[in-house]
Design a protein around this nucleic acid. Structure first.
Lengths: 189, 189
DNA sequence: AAAATACTGTATGGCGTCGTACAGTATGCA
DNA sequence: TGCATACTGTACGACGCCATACAGTATTTT
């Protein structure tokens, strides 16, 4: 059992499985950024949030959630963490008493600069051996892919007509099998 | 192509341009597959597991974990779920009494066929407007990116400038702890 | 043979995110 | 003006995954 050269063994045919390659790569991206940000005591989400408000100024949490692509509830948690470390600050908005304007503190600005540094360094490393055109082509194809994915998600699970009224409850019984399972032959270890 | 058609607004922050697009796309991939697999009562992980053993026969959980790129503990959970629905089966290995050989049941094989169908349909949709060469180029660049990511992860926090004596231990205490915070000016809502 | 080492699957606790429900606030409409 | 609707941030429960620790089993070393 040697193998394990790079990713897996030779069983996976990446010829057709572009999607799984994509997801694996995304996971690696997150891992790499997390690793590099760990010395700052941050993960990728926290760093992105801090970097964003450091660049664009105080922002409401809903906007942050939109930009970071996570839910409003999750953003609240991240803001809590960063606020507990005095890196950011919740300020009431004079215009809208529902919202917080989340802005950086002085310490937050300093750390944001370090984040920016880490980000630049890592991205430079990731570009090694990849030409500018190739990167642009990659971005273009992925954008196109995103469009297709979006339509695939919003569109009903195939075969259904364009009118989405039929997709009201396509799956009333997700558990088809009886599951009686009288013979539990599971070894106890 | 002014981009931002589908994703967000026109901000397109210089943060993690390509990388964030990649991660957003990966998220969409998972969402799309989950949506299409929902009528079968499965998510992407479960479907991948079932499809794998349907194609390659009984497999140990460690192998499955390696192939699906998740930990052994997580695999155990997924196997439990699928086994509870009588889609797969744990069989003791005659050769090694530590391991289970996870194989499909008859119902599992049937469902695996449906999974394969869903998979083919969705992937065909995702290819719309993307040429074969472009897909191959995408795969190539991502593979290269994976290599760079791998080295970036395993390699120490990089930089390694002439001598980093000044930043020998840049952050021994991630919590600067001015956390006394006597003025909790947080509004109660 | 016995002991040391490596490996497999499981239990446990933790983290990050999601989805839903909710109170407070703003906005549009009668 | 009053009322209905929409929006913001939070609380709560759930899910998926990770990391660690562990007992049982295999494999290698002595």
């Amino acid at each position: 059992m040697t193998s394990h050269l790079t990713t897996h063994e030779l069983d996976s045919p990446p010829w057709l499985r572009v999607e799984s390659t994509l997801m694996a790569t995304a996971r690696l991206v997150r891992t790499a950024f997390d690793a590099r940000l760990a010395p700052l005591g941050l993960n990728l989400t926290q760093a992105s949030l801090l970097g964003y408000i450091a660049e664009f100024g105080p922002t409401t949490q809903t906007r942050l959630a939109d930009h970071l692509d996570i839910g409003r509830a999750a953003i609240g948690s991240v803001v809590d963490q960063l606020e507990a470390r005095s890196l950011i600050e919740r300020q009431p908005s004079p215009a809208d008493r529902r919202v917080w304007l989340v802005g950086t503190t002085a310490a937050g600005r300093d750390l944001a600069a370090e984040i920016s540094e880490v980000d630049a360094v890592l991205r430079a490393e990731l570009r090694r051996g990849i030409g500018r055109e190739e990167r642009q082509a990659l971005a273009w194809v992925m954008t196109r892919l995103q469009q297709n994915l979006q339509t695939a998600i919003t569109n009903p699970p195939a075969s259904a007509p364009p009118d989405a009224s039929s997709s009201a409850s396509p799956n009333p019984s997700p558990n088809p099998s009886p599951t009686n399972d009288p013979t539990n032959n599971r070894r106890e270890k």
